[in-house]
Design a protein around this nucleic acid. Structure first.
Length: 290
DNA sequence: AACTACTCCTGGAGGC
DNA sequence: TGCCTCCAGGAGTAGT
């Protein structure tokens, strides 16, 4: 599930709750999620203090005081829960990522793959029902080997995401269909299936259109909508989807996961079809194929 | 360059 | 109730 807004929202919360805390225990319950870079493991995290949290595309980077970094990719169904220390009383769990299993399930459970215990008694749990999540433990200067710029395109929230840079990247793949192009992390980094559908709907552009078919106004609209939908999710809450359906009443998503329901702009029934194997939602009236 | 298929996994939903 | 099939928000690789 987790796309840029979900990972960034999680990063912001973890920055508050983990920074300056020391890791006193680390347990990896599912070894296969740890990716091999050198011989480092989660045991190397013990004794280190969390120096800060960064994000690149959908990767979460936990920088530690001992020169190592823990890099996490939540994949399709990764979830993080931080259980506050018992003494904290009313403090709620911090939760992020895929909402299944329910965040309030007792932890750990059989889908829990990593447990980090901090020196204030709080516990960080990484859960993933599908085991597609990935972890790396690498020296901080080598984080780039996990998240290389040649595989990860322009960062949407960064200063380099300008209209000019976006258009340059569209021009490079002018005959590709927009949906797979926007999903390709090496073009624009951070979008996933939900936010691509939302951006294209916002701009009134059909996912099977190509960059070459867009006029000036459409290119600008698409650029603006990508920023707008990401900002909306960061400010007002991320898209709420459970079992591939939009949660009724949530402000996002507006179109993804809403097959047959009325388009919020024109009222036409939203349609679903497949593009490159991915479930894709469009308003057949607002998003003309042209 | 662009597209498809297949892979890693497991759980939930819907059809019968 | 059970069994079957399909589907799922990511991303890498291989083949056409």
């Amino acid at each position: 599930m987790p796309e840029l807004p979900e990972v960034e929202t999680l990063r912001r919360q973890l920055a508050v709750s983990l920074t300056a805390k020391k890791i006193v225990a680390a347990e990896l319950l599912t070894p296969k999620i740890l990716q091999g870079v050198g011989d480092r493991g989660v045991a190397d995290l013990v004794g280190a203090t969390v120096a800060g949290l960064r994000r690149r595309a959908k990767y979460l980077i936990v920088d530690l005081s001992n020169g190592l970094s823990l890099v996490v990719h939540l994949g399709l169904a990764g979830q993080v829960v931080v259980e506050p220390p018992p003494a904290a009383g009313g403090d709620a769990r911090i939760t992020g990522g895929h909402p299944v299993p329910a965040f309030d399930r007792p932890l750990p459970h059989k889908q829990t793959h990593l447990i980090l215990t901090l020196d204030d008694g709080s516990i960080v749990y990484l859960t993933d029902i599908r085991k597609f999540a990935k972890l790396w433990v690498v020296p901080t200067p080598e984080v780039f080997s996990v998240v290389p710029d040649e595989r990860l395109g322009v960062e949407i929230l960064g200063p380099e995401f300008t209209r000019e840079e976006f258009e340059r990247r569209l021009r490079r793949r002018s005959r590709a269909r927009l949906k797979p192009l926007l999903l390709d992390q090496s073009a624009v980094a951070g979008l996933g299936n939900i936010y691509v559908d939302e951006s294209l709907w916002g701009a009134g552009i059909h996912p099977l259109r190509t960059p070459a078919s867009l006029d000036d106004g459409e290119r600008t609209a698409l650029f603006d909508e990508i920023r707008a939908v990401i900002d909306l999710a960061l400010e007002n809450g991320v898209a709420k989807i459970v079992n591939a359906r939009a949660v009724e009443g949530a402000h996002l998503p507006r179109i993804h996961g809403r097959e047959g329901r009325p388009c919020p702009r024109c009222g036409a029934p939203i349609e679903k079809f497949r593009v490159g194997g991915r479930g894709t939602y469009v308003c057949p009236v607002c998003q003309l194929k042209r």
